[in-house]
């Protein structure tokens, strides 16, 4: 499982995260909410392996996170992390291929359908609405069936129906044993976490 060991991070010598030790449990829902600028996104980027901690390590099953460990992590950040000049289907096929999903084409079709984008599969992502992009981003993060799902405001920009369906996907992945770690400031939402966390002075604190 994904674990943080004494992780600290500084930007321009300003400490943002300090000495964070944390281990995710499989099939558990985590919700992190904290004020803006408290380092939520930074923490998520470090867990995803996009950013290197100033001190400390990110571990996958006890070993430092490497490309093979990244295979088990799915990530949704503020940006949809897709290409505007590729179609929805091409984007999913590209990422399915990069994650080594068997029969990438089939998987891409299946996930387009689940995201309710089957009619938009051949449209360039550039022409998608914000809600469509967000659903595509979640599909991109789930296509390789990760063991850990890291999310930054996954319900942002979605209408009520969209929020419900994305929350439904999250619960479904949790029932398969995936640990879901979500950053949201809106806590009164469709999605109920098992553990609530916050960041206080750069340290990760369990609230409830």
């Amino acid at each position: 499982m994904l674990a943080l060991e004494g992780v600290s991070k500084a930007f321009d010598l300003r400490p943002v995260l300090e000495e964070i030790d944390f281990t995710l449990a499989p099939g558990c829902r985590y919700l992190l909410s904290a004020p803006n600028g408290s380092g939520k996104t930074t923490l998520l980027r470090i867990m995803a392996g996009l950013s290197r901690p100033t001190r400390g390590r990110v571990l996958w099953n006890g070993a430092p996170l490497d490309p093979r460990g990244r295979r088990h992590i799915g990530v949704v950040l503020q940006q949809p992390m897709v290409y505007g000049d590729l179609t929805g289907e091409e984007n999913l096929r590209l990422f399915a291929g990069l994650y080594g999903v068997r029969d990438a084409r089939q998987a891409a079709r299946r996930w387009l359908e689940r995201a309710g984008l089957e009619d938009a599969g051949r449209t360039l992502v550039r022409h998608y609405s914000k809600g469509m992009r967000q659903r595509l981003a979640v599909a991109r993060a789930l296509i390789h069936e990760p063991a850990v799902l890291l999310l930054d405001e996954p319900l942002d920009g979605l209408d009520l129906e969209g929020r419900r369906s994305v929350a439904g996907w999250l619960d479904e992945t949790v029932s398969r044993g995936t640990a879901v770690f979500a950053v949201m400031h809106d806590t009164a939402s469709e999605w109920r976490p098992d553990v609530r966390l916050t960041l206080r002075w750069g340290r990760l604190v369990v609230v409830a």
């Binding site: 897709v82 990069l98 992502v125």
Partner: peptide, 19 residues
């Protein structure tokens, strides 16, 4: 620019691929 526009480049960095 295409990598940065919608964050596709970061998506690729996440993949289990030697950078």
């Amino acid at each position: 620019f295409k990598d940065q526009e919608w964050g596709g480049g970061e998506g690729v960095l996440l993949a289990p691929v030697d950078r």
